[in-house]
Amino acid sequence: MKHITIDPREERAPTRGSSANPPLSLSPAKATKEALLDATTNASLYFIGTATILLEWQGIRILTDPNFLHAGDHVHLGPGVTSQRLTNPAVELHELPRVDLILLSHYHEDHFDKKVEDSLRRDLPIITTPHANHHLAEVKKGDDAFRCVHPLDHFESLFINIAGAGDGQSKQPTIKMTGMPGKHVPPGPAQVLRTTNNLLGMVPPTNGWMVELGYGVPDWGDSTFECRYRIYISGDTLMVDDLKEIPERYKDQKIDLMLIHLGGTAIPHAKAPLLMVTMDAVQGLQLVQLINPELTIPIHYDDYDVFQSPLKDFKHAMEKAGLQGKVVYLDRGDKYLFSVQKS
């Protein structure tokens, strides 16, 4: 079992060449939404835009799929395929407080833009796919290479021990990260397109994630770990058979929250859709019904011009299925507060 240790007491900016004293916290959220729990909230998600979320718990800050481009900027998604951003992020990269870890679903510019790639500290830990690890830690040379990349394949796990959070013997706050399956290219009759993609590298391999917040004895792994709050992040995937293994593996284990990537991303463009590579509203509803989380928060739905399935379609699908009470909608700059129980 893989383990890393992160010390949240070390105040360092996420970007290289920046001040050693980054902001202590994000600017206040536009709106705050809370879980319907009696317990005091002790964890939060801040929606920055597209698939970029800042998760905070026990002093640890985890940033997902960092994309900080602005409206009018373009990303390169493969040979001859570009996309224009239509929105602005809720905060700027340099306005972030200390970030302890990047969780990167795949190596695509709308999830890890070139400015972010050039700017981030090279010793900032990154959990990602083996494909992204190759590009970030192996292809890059010298001072340009990222030095703390941790690749996880599907259903591989890594434990994050939080330094300073306990005495080193008793159970202390711990995060378990597990790669979840995902497919960016549809199965079946799209075999020719998949073969072409393999040659051109237009749509890279992708992961979803299971993020388990809980308590364990450092370096002991599953034998002592007790999950207190479980978050499933779908990543950029379609509704494929591989996802059916998730509820099988987590049978009788509650999934408290799902962050679902929507948008119905079409390439080469929403106006000329040849291939859909992320879930639209119909597939999103199907995933909600398959995973059956306590709550769903949709992200990745309107930031780029390759998205063809608007959020209102997902809202309608959830309402029609009678699931409107099990979803929270966040705008960029909104924060969701929740509680991770200690026992």
Results as ranks from 00 to 15, higher is better:
residue 285 L to G: 01
residue 111 H to K: 08
residue 59 G to H: 03
residue 75 V to I: 04
residue 95 E to S: 13
residue 165 A to E: 08
residue 77 L to H: 12
residue 134 H to S: 05
residue 141 K to R: 13
residue 167 D to H: 09
residue 238 L to C: 00
residue 142 G to K: 07
residue 264 G to S: 12
residue 210 M to T: 00
residue 155 F to Y: 15
residue 259 L to E: 13
residue 14 P to G: 10
residue 130 P to L: 07
residue 147 R to I: 01
residue 339 S to V: 03
residue 130 P to F: 09
residue 181 P to D: 10
residue 31 A to W: 07
residue 212 E to M: 00
residue 102 I to Y: 09
residue 340 V to K: 01
residue 22 P to M: 05
residue 302 D to M: 07
residue 285 L to E: 01
residue 55 L to H: 11
residue 16 R to Y: 08
residue 75 V to R: 02
residue 118 D to R: 14
residue 93 L to G: 05
residue 220 W to Y: 01
residue 52 T to Y: 05
residue 78 G to L: 11
residue 25 S to E: 14
residue 98 R to G: 13
residue 286 Q to V: 02
residue 84 Q to K: 15
residue 317 A to R: 10
residue 109 E to A: 15
residue 226 E to M: 12
residue 89 P to T: 03
residue 207 N to V: 09
residue 305 D to S: 08
residue 134 H to E: 04
residue 335 K to M: 01
residue 204 P to Q: 14
residue 226 E to P: 05
residue 217 V to K: 12
residue 111 H to I: 03
residue 28 P to W: 09
residue 116 V to G: 06
residue 331 D to M: 03
residue 266 A to I: 04
residue 121 R to T: 05
residue 13 A to W: 03
residue 285 L to M: 00
residue 248 E to R: 15
residue 28 P to C: 07
residue 287 L to E: 09
residue 3 H to V: 03
residue 61 R to G: 09
residue 153 D to G: 15
residue 241 D to T: 13
residue 237 T to K: 02
residue 333 G to K: 02
residue 161 N to E: 14
residue 152 L to W: 06
residue 110 D to W: 03
residue 98 R to D: 07
residue 296 T to P: 09
residue 334 D to F: 00
residue 185 V to Q: 02
residue 6 I to Y: 01
residue 125 P to T: 08
residue 26 L to T: 04
residue 14 P to I: 12
residue 336 Y to G: 02
residue 83 S to N: 13
residue 181 P to H: 06
residue 47 F to P: 01
residue 18 S to I: 02
residue 255 I to V: 15
residue 145 A to P: 11
residue 300 H to F: 12
residue 19 S to E: 04
residue 122 R to P: 11
residue 124 L to D: 09
residue 280 D to I: 13
residue 239 M to Y: 15
residue 241 D to M: 04
residue 42 N to P: 04
residue 167 D to T: 07
residue 232 Y to W: 11
residue 338 F to R: 11
residue 32 T to C: 04
residue 24 L to D: 10
residue 264 G to R: 07
residue 261 H to G: 02
residue 294 E to N: 11
residue 251 K to H: 15
residue 58 Q to L: 01
residue 310 P to I: 09
residue 232 Y to A: 14
residue 342 K to H: 07
residue 198 N to Q: 15
residue 269 H to Q: 12
residue 11 E to S: 13
residue 62 I to S: 00
residue 16 R to F: 10
residue 62 I to V: 14
residue 204 P to F: 13
residue 57 W to M: 00
residue 293 P to Y: 12
residue 157 S to Q: 12
residue 93 L to W: 08
residue 216 G to C: 06
residue 253 Q to S: 08
residue 156 E to D: 11
residue 96 L to T: 05
residue 136 L to P: 05
residue 322 G to F: 04
residue 20 A to C: 08
residue 14 P to R: 08
residue 195 T to G: 14
residue 77 L to F: 12
residue 259 L to I: 15
residue 162 I to W: 00
residue 330 L to P: 07
residue 173 P to N: 04
residue 38 D to E: 08
residue 174 T to N: 02
residue 213 L to K: 06
residue 104 L to C: 07
residue 319 E to V: 06
residue 168 G to I: 09
